[in-house]
Write a protein that binds this DNA or RNA. Structure first.
Lengths: 243, 243
DNA sequence: TACCTTTATGTCAAAAGTACGCAAAGATGT
DNA sequence: ACATCTTTGCGTACTTTTGACATAAAGGTA
């Protein structure tokens, strides 16, 4: 049953020695593109099965840094805004047999993980700066619109759901600026809030509210090429984009 | 250096076999008494050192249930409102040598915990229903007012701080009723909000706001023995106290 | 140039939050 | 017995925030 030459076996043997058992990290990487909230997902080799990026914590590494490392590897980003949002600690989080069958790895007998407790982190990243990269177990890494996500491996649909709820609840004090390019228009910012909150907002009231916070500076430039009135470009004031 | 007959050694040997390594739970148990927010702490045998209650997760046990078990053992309560609030995952959370010296256990060589990642839970409990109970490493278990907490073992002062911030932030959707006895007066409820929020409130506006929520029912009875006008007793309506 | 859509602002009323007035209740001191 | 004091319970008025909606300017399309 176990193929001792398969790279997965060697990976898990490595992990087994150097990482903390029973514990993992799953990352929900949020991006924003074409007025839609997106999540970065991985397709496992030789399958049509997708999952969140994840990984294990080195025995010598802080949990936050492990999350940074894992997510940096998939995005190529140097700096990251990360937020721990929940620990998934049920004894049975998903149907293990079914899942192992789907990912089809010849290492099912290894005594690594009768169960795994997963610490969930979400990242807010700028879509255009991400260079999606697979790991050795996967062969495709790409963005999915939040409303088009397929049935994922493990309990990852659930994890995304909880991440989104957490983001929604804390949207007021999260640095939303990380999801946007340096310059953007007010309507674009509005679409972002709308997709996070899950409902539409009145453009006039949104404008008023955003302006009242005094976080934005308007540039002289306008967004060209729009079919209608060209909107001004804005930028977060330094103190706020650095958060 | 290691006393193989010391109960702590046997405990850790047990834990080492049956529990998940590198991972623990710490519980911040909030109670409310005499208009003060309190936390339940343990004093370690033969020392003047205090810590939060904590423990380890059985390999076969969900994290939430482990937290329940650990906190039930210290409080004697059958039902508990628990809230996971943060994972403390730094590689160096406190000065280990200093701490081991303080708790003075003859098991310092055991290779159990080079480091521990701790999942923080807070509990909201009714002060009067708690029967504090020590474990085999401690000899005193009692309530401390939040503003009189001494320097604790490990990073437990920090954990309490983070728990309080979390409670404060979420006070709006937490079932505060669990911190109060079945019946209470409006001024008592106000003191509770004041200690959680950390600032005083206007009694008249507080009354209006609470009443607008329509969660309380007023009893015919009044609180006797007060030096001034006897306040009415109230009770949370069933739908709210059951949350 | 008429027309259409979107942006950028403005107005106004409803709702929520804040400041503060005050009478009734109940204990205390004389 | 009665004035005094504090606290409770409820009310009024002002301010700030939120939400609904009007409209002119901008910029493309027919």
């Amino acid at each position: 049953m176990i193929d001792y030459n398969h790279p997965a076996f060697q990976y898990y043997q490595n992990v087994s020695e150097q990482c903390i058992h029973y514990l993992s990290i799953d990352g929900v990487i949020f991006g924003f593109h074409q007025n839609q909230l997106k999540v970065l997902l991985l397709r496992w080799k030789g399958t049509d099965e997708w999952s969140l990026p994840g990984g294990f914590i080195l025995k010598t590494e802080s949990v936050d840094l492990a999350a940074q490392r894992i997510i940096k590897e998939r995005t190529g980003l140097q700096t990251l805004y990360l937020q721990q949002f929940h620990v998934f600690g049920e004894t049975v989080r998903y149907n293990q047999e079914e899942t192992w069958a789907k990912i089809n790895l010849p290492i099912q007998g290894i005594n690594w993980s009768e169960r795994t407790i997963s610490i969930g982190y979400y990242a807010l990243v700028e879509y255009a700066e991400v260079v999606p990269a697979t790991d050795f177990l996967t062969e495709e890494c790409r963005w999915w619109s939040l409303d088009a996500i397929p049935a994922l491996l493990f309990d990852h649909n659930h994890i995304i759901e909880v991440a989104l709820q957490s983001l929604r609840k804390n949207v007021g004090d999260q640095p939303i600026s990380h999801l946007l390019p340096d310059t953007f228009t007010i309507p674009e910012l509005q679409r972002l809030y709308e997709t996070i909150l899950g409902h539409s907002l009145d453009a006039r009231n949104f404008y008023k509210k955003i302006m009242a916070q005094n976080n934005l500076e308007r540039l002289a430039e306008r967004r060209a090429g729009t079919p209608h009135k060209a909107p001004y470009l804005y930028r977060f004031k330094v103190a706020f984009s650095e958060r």
